[in-house]
Design a protein around this nucleic acid. Sequence first.
DNA 1: TAGGTCACG
DNA 2: ACGTACGTGACCTAG
Length: 485
Amino acid sequence: MVAAWLLNPERIGKTPYALEHLAETKLGISGIEYDDIVGKGQTFADVPLDVATNYCAEDADFTWQLYELFAPQLTANKLDALFFSIEMRLLPILAEMELNGIHVDSDALAAYNEELTARIADAEKAIYKEIGHEFNIASTKQLQEILFEERQLPKGKKTKTGYSTDTSVLEELALIDAVPQLILAYRELTKLQSTYVETLPKLCDEHGRVHTSFFQTGTATGRLSSRDPNLQNIPIRNDDGRRIRAAFTAAPGTVLISADYSQIELVVLAHLSQDKNMCRAFTDGVDIHRATAALIFGVAEDQVTADMRRTAKTINFGVIYGMSAFRLAHQLGIPRRQAQEFIDSYFAQYAAIRNFIEATVATAEIRGYVETIFGRRRYIATINSKNRTEKASAERIAVNTPVQGSAADIVKKAMIAVDEALSDAQTGARLLLQVHDELILDCPDDTAAIEKTVAVLHDHMEHAVTLSVPLRISVEYGKNWGAFH
DNA sequence: TAGGTCACG
DNA sequence: ACGTACGTGACCTAG
């Protein structure tokens, strides 16, 4: 599965890397259907031994035949080092992380659930009072009727089926009407309740731990994904969300340790582009958004205002995503002309970044794919499209993928190094989660063990690769994931 | 199952 | 003149 994914990481269909699917499409063999041997309401344990034996032997055979097919292809595409030295070594580490699980304080979530239920009921009442009647607030169709017909509010963005009621639209409308703000609050609370607060306790094992599945062949860029439950999107961005993160707790006698890379994608961008100004900022170890603001506004770093820094931060992210002046203007609430001036100023100061973007797109147009620092590939079928929108979208993907994907490579390499060093150190610290640029571990609550683990993390995460600029991490630890010290 | 929405990096 | 930032997974409604 991993080999097939490395050879073409663009997901086509629903289960493109499932063994049976690969056997059919790559080997032209159709195997025993799982559903034919495991009846409804049964498990694999109910299957007679001889039937189960055939099924399992077939899986082993398919795996071998696929290996023989893919091995030379990996070599031909220079993907063999990535496959053997990174992905295959990561696989058992992910398995262990899944088995470890992370402890969740279900009592704390139950208490929070009571509070949320009351606050949601209040929000509902306030909405119905303002509207004058009841309706299903969660139905975008009904909400559209309320906002745009009953209340005659101005229509904004269109969706395939009508007019959008998403956060950005409601925030606009909140300036002229009382209802949108109430809807926003309602949505925020119900999202937290249904996705996290009510769900996580049901998924705990007998030790109060939840076990995610890390999906190694799930993304087009090389990142992992996390499912059932997704533990890579646990809230943090506001206080209500943080209370959910705080329910992820250290088991008795342990602490949780979090280590996250500082601005890893911008560090990668500095390395890939070799931009003088951006490399210098990272080498000097300064706040990159402040440094960017100083450059584009032409002031000293200590003269940078909060507003200037916010603007610079938005543009820094915008570059990674392939920003437009339109989006930047909306995001910052400024005229489009001014947004364009900021962008021009940005590329005047970071000239090599513009060159990197242009060179990356040009390479993609010629080769049909882009790659990361470890040679991970992504084919971009529409990079030479005649359709303007499609072409622009392909260009953003071409520029973003080497940045996001190289960061993913680095984190995977760091996980392998950290895992090995932790085994050697014998402190009892274990990897639990990976959230793209962050590793979460648990560790015996013992000063020597914690200090050793923190040292291992600095050593092996910061030196996972050698770039032309330093990689930095910040490490925190404590009794729960929401409040570290 | 598709579409809309929203949680995260 | 046109459309308008990358990558995910989960929940809810509607058909």
